[in-house]
């Protein structure tokens, strides 16, 4: 189980990295490598060129920028997990990291790399969708902004083109008083999710407002549940409302099963976790 050969490039700055990316076809960026290297070891991924961005210290940041937090491509999971800035403004992320992989993997892996890998069972693609983050994709000479909900297009597939690189994630700070919820079921703590459900919401005058719910693990990509969000908006929170909403939401889902985990089971999980997440978020909202 050894990787196939590749040409190795180690740019010292972003501009060089983007030039390399523009020059070489069949190139992969490696940051943490925690998803890419296993696939290379299995030879499921055999890039001809590997562009190592670990020297791009300019991308290693977690910053407050007005009403948003910006996270650079080289910010490691562990740094984000430990970040007081994140804990203060986005406790959902800090909490979710308790469920994401293990320390040695978080030490090395990056959030942006995780998003680009686009594993449908990964938690963060759902989380950045409820946070309505924006992803900055750069190529040699230009860049563009992509909303989180448009970034993921399929299993292991995103809108990021071959010559593009995700350089920054911009996450708007949720309004003060926003409640959050996170629930996951996996075989072991730290494994990829069989299903993870995340939610942000506010409670205004006893009514739900700005409800955002997303699910990982239950489809080919992590996805928001807009019908559920609309149905809940303006409702007075109650367990009955949550249960009914969950039932309806699950009916609309078409989970993708596997040999180990059936579609029925995934549907059951989403059905079970939705009310828990909504209740938790409601309890945290003020």
């Amino acid at each position: 189980m050894k990787p196939a050969p590749f040409d190795y490039h180690r740019p010292e700055d972003l501009q060089s990295a983007l030039s390399l990316l523009g020059t070489h076809t069949d190139a992969s960026i490696i940051a943490g490598g925690q998803s890419l290297v296993p696939m290379m070891n299995y030879r499921l991924a055999q890039p001809e060129h590997l562009i190592d961005i670990n020297r791009l210290s300019e991308l290693d940041y977690i910053r407050e920028d007005g009403d948003q937090i910006t996270i650079g491509a080289l910010a490691r999971h562990d740094a984000i997990h430990a970040s007081e800035l994140i804990a203060e403004h986005m406790p959902l992320i800090s909490h979710a990291y308790e469920w994401i992989a293990h320390k040695a993997v978080r030490n090395r892996g990056t959030l942006c790399g995780n998003l680009c890998h686009a594993d449908p069972a990964s938690e963060m693609p759902a989380i950045i969708q409820v946070l309505e983050a924006t992803l900055i994709l750069a190529r040699n000479g230009s860049s563009r902004e992509v909303p989180a909900k448009e970034f993921f297009v399929g299993t292991y597939d995103t809108v990021c083109e071959e010559d593009e690189m995700l350089v920054e994630l911009r996450i708007p700070k949720p309004t003060a008083g926003t409640g959050w919820g996170f629930e996951e079921v996996s075989m072991r703590k730290g494994d990829f999710a069989w299903a993870a459900v995340v939610c942000l919401l506010r409670v205004e005058n006893g009514r739900l407002d700005d409800v955002r719910v997303a699910v990982s693990g239950a489809a080919e990509i992590a996805l928001r549940l807009p019908d559920l969000e609309v149905a809940l908006a303006g409702q007075a929170p109650s367990s009955d409302i949550f249960e009914n909403a969950a039932t309806k939401a699950v009916d609309a889902l078409a989970p993708v099963g596997s040999a180990t985990v059936s579609a029925d089971y995934k549907r059951d999980l989403v059905r079970a976790l939705l009310p828990r997440v909504l209740s938790a978020a409601t309890a945290r909202a003020s």
């Binding site: 075989m187 072991r188 703590k189 730290g190 494994d191 990829f192 596997s258 040999a259 180990t260």
Partner: peptide, 16 residues
């Protein structure tokens, strides 16, 4: 054999 790896054939960890 659909799950011949340590990610899907789950040996208990300290948490289990």
């Amino acid at each position: 054999f659909t799950n011949p790896n340590f990610a899907e054939f789950a040996l208990p960890s300290a948490h289990e």
